[in-house]
Design a protein around this nucleic acid. Sequence first.
RNA 1: UGUCCCGUAGUGUAAUUGGCAACACGUCUGAUUCUGGAUCAGAAGAGUUCAGGUUCGAGACCUGACGGGACAACCA
Length: 567
Amino acid sequence: MSDELIKEKEESKPSISFVEQFIVEDLKAGKNNGKITTRFPPEPNGYLHIGHAKAICLDFGMAKKHGGKCNLRFDDTNPIKEDVEYVDSIKEDIHWLGFDWEVREYYASDYFGKLYDFAVSLIKRGLAYVDDQPADLISSQKGTPSQPGVESPYRNRDVKENIDLFERMNKGEFEEGSCVLRAKVDITSPNMHMRDPIIYRIIKTPHHRTGSKWMVYPMYDFAHGQSDYFEGVTHSLCTLEFEVHRPLYDWFIDQLKTTEYRPRQIEFNRLNLTYTMMSKRKLLELVKEGKVRGWDDPRMPTLCGLRRRGYTPEAIKRFVDLIGYTKVEAINDVSLLEHAIREDLNMRTTRVFGVLNPLKIIIKNYPEGKVENVELINNPEDESMGKRMVPFSREVFIEQDDFMEVPPHKFFRLAPGMEVRLKGAYIIKCEGFKKNDKTGIIEEVYCTYDPATKSGESTSEKKVKGTLHWVSAQHAIDAEVRLYDRLFNHEDPAGQKDDDYRKFLNPDSLKVLTECKVEPSLESAKPLEKFQFQRLGYFCVDYDSTGSKLVFNRTVQLKDTWAKINK
RNA sequence: UGUCCCGUAGUGUAAUUGGCAACACGUCUGAUUCUGGAUCAGAAGAGUUCAGGUUCGAGACCUGACGGGACAACCA
């Protein structure tokens, strides 16, 4: 290939998603004056999860890239399920991800008046009617996906009566469930959503924003598209399951529009991740049943859970970028998410020493009482992060896994007669150990060090295969470390027809280690601060930390080829 | 028995809109390394669900199968 060809290839634009292609086509065609406005429409009935992050990135991302705005709109049409608690957390999570709706914080409930008026207008045009039948009857008259529905006996009530009834519904004169307002579309349509959909129902539970002003609330299909319309949204991006709603979305817009402007719904695939699930209802169950410690349990796929786990917004956005937007219902491998966070944390975290399962090493020829401060590089990937001093002394802790009485082939760590380097300090040689005869546990290991091998000023030619992390016993700080594993031991726990997802909960998803030792520089670490514990993984200070006790969450392990060889 | 959507290496996405499949993750080599990390070099792995058709030429277009999914909440 010629240099020019290579250059051409490198400069060619990365492909854009089908969603963006539609947007670009619309913009080029001059639709809606060639402008773009999007919206992110969460229902305030739960916490945001990483699946929402995918939608947020698209909604805000497309608007920004093409010179438009993205509104935040709470889809709060069901007071029974919704709460302000969720509104606040949703706003916090969007900001944390790095997106901003500026002053455009809207609520579907802002439009209850307009929506009501539109409903009345439909009634007047003979396009909506009050149905007095009970829910199960209406439902059975709708037919099934393969059988057309039949008309309600109330379908042809006259306009005056319909208006009167609808007004009285809203005044609270009727019981919940006693009647509904339906759009008159096509009861025989092959699309169930077109079979005279219910557009208003009576709910007497007070709404978190409008209180008891309304007794009648619009259904999703009657609120969403219209809200888009009221806000001037041009591209209403949602997930695949709303594909069958689109004809109804368009039908309402047709009844509503007075100019050329119209919003367009485009559906993309939702995010599925292996070994977890995104159902808000099921996540709520995990919380309520105490299967996890709350919405922000670091094992949860919620944004607050990932945040507490040590994930960064950059890594999440990078991940979302990697998986793309298509119409294929896919399940994404968590290993890709883990790749994204490792890549990010590798560049930004300070390397520190932390020993999870301490084993004491006594260096017999190192003077008692002597302390040396050895210099360590904070991040080999980024020189500007500087260096720090770490105390070294006669007794240090190393990882239990780093010593074996009878080492297997290719074990480059400590074993009787073997030499290893204590990173940043000296090369030591194992001369013996103390073993508890009853338990078989190695309690202490005895070594000698070679003073000529000090890091940085070594006068020795000596080389060793293994380098260990360590913490000086007398200087070590105690810490608790929480190790997380996948919450479920099935790739698709919620997708098994015959089995409840609870059956697949991983009993080992949380391991708490309380005897850990970390280097003294971590003393003042604050919640959410992130580190690489050398040779182990990335860790993040938990909110549970107190002045006297540090608690760390393991975000993700480092790749471990030794563990792989060992299998 | 319906309508709609989808089907490209193990996984997720590409393929200049018809010119004989690329990237990322993962996997496996090797180099390097005071992190068995990172980095670097390289390899294996799909002939695009199947069968027809249109075409000089099809992953892409058409038809039909097959497979997966969505739709029967007074949820969103």
